[in-house]
């Protein structure tokens, strides 16, 4: 059952008015950007050696780590010639006073499903290349999102972390033994990169009062009526949308939000590209 949030951060009314007044003037509460510009973003790859792929994304004060692990498993019955991609998100209690230990709540589930759909709908990972034996053995790719510090806008940071960790992932070495079993051997060098066909980012646009702004920080998010998460691929297509939050938007605001998202998306694509290039230079 989904319940109206009853444990919310307390934001003074004056602060709320200040945030809104700033955005009306084309400024932000952190003082360094306009409504179409995300906070500073860094993407670091290969932060967890045990994982097949990993990334740490810092977006302002928000930190999200993503780890990719791969197992050999059975394909879904209706897609015998495709590997399996699964995204999960953990709102780790150390990340925010608002997070409690326990199974994923509706916010964690929504986040994981939005990231999952955005990757899936464009075929970001070519799952057809992840078949070991048709109908029997395929690679199961787990993307686990770990929210480490909640400074607002978990959607964009998590999408970036997932995409970056997938770009960083290497398929482990495996052998088919006589019984037909497939044995993974991580002591041997990995086989190669995952087949990534498209890059996807999300840009979250918050509606604060009557104004729109991308990449809300924690305070902005707390006073926002509603957010529209816009997923865009590297071909400029809209590959997903999710309205999230108690409020509503007009059709005109939906169109303007998509235009703002398009304006901001290159910042995220650039951060991904820089991470991918620098990790190639390191030979990792």
């Amino acid at each position: 059952m989904s319940v109206t949030p009853f444990r919310l951060p307390v934001i003074a009314k004056l602060r709320r008015e200040a945030i809104e007044a700033l955005i009306a003037k084309g400024l932000r509460v952190d003082g360094k950007r306009d409504p179409a510009t995300p906070r500073s973003v860094t993407v670091e790859l290969g932060v967890i050696e045990r994982a097949e792929g990993s990334a740490l994304v810092k977006l302002g004060n928000t930190q999200v780590m993503a780890g990719v692990k791969m197992d050999v498993g059975a394909p879904f019955r209706d897609t015998p010639d495709q590997g399996v991609l699964t995204v999960h998100a953990e709102f780790v209690p150390l990340a925010s006073p608002l997070f409690e230990p326990g199974p994923p709540d509706e916010n964690a589930i929504e986040l994981a499903r939005v990231v999952d759909r955005s990757l899936r709908e464009v075929g970001a990972v070519d799952l057809g290349e992840l078949v070991i034996r048709s109908g029997e053995k395929v690679w199961v790719v787990w993307v686990d999102l770990y929210i480490l510090d909640h400074g607002g806008n978990l959607f964009d940071a998590s999408m970036l972390a997932a995409m970056a960790a997938l770009l960083n992932a290497r398929i482990p070495y495996y052998e088919e033994i006589e019984t037909g079993e497939v044995v993974v051997d991580r002591s041997k060098p990995p086989l190669g990169a995952l087949p990534i066909r498209r890059r996807v980012v999300t840009v979250t646009v918050a509606k604060i009062g009557r104004h729109l702004a991308v990449d809300p920080d924690f305070e902005e998010e707390s006073v926002a009526d509603v957010r529209l998460v816009v997923a865009l691929d590297d071909g400029g297509r809209i590959v997903g949308l999710q309205k999230s939050g108690e409020g509503a938007i007009t059709r005109e605001e939906a169109r303007r939000a998509i235009a703002l998202a398009r304006q901001a998306a290159p910042v995220y694509f650039k951060a991904l590209e820089e991470a991918a290039t620098s990790s190639k230079a390191d030979g990792s």
């Binding site: 759909r117 709908e121 464009v122 529209l228 997923a231 691929d233 297509r237 809209i238 590959v239 997903g240 949308l241 999710q242 309205k243 509503a248 938007i249 007009t250 059709r251 939906a254």
Partner: peptide, 11 residues
């Protein structure tokens, strides 16, 4: 004049 649910699954 308000949209209260909006999702897109696909391209």
């Amino acid at each position: 004049g308000l949209i209260t649910l909006l999702q897109l699954n696909g391209v």
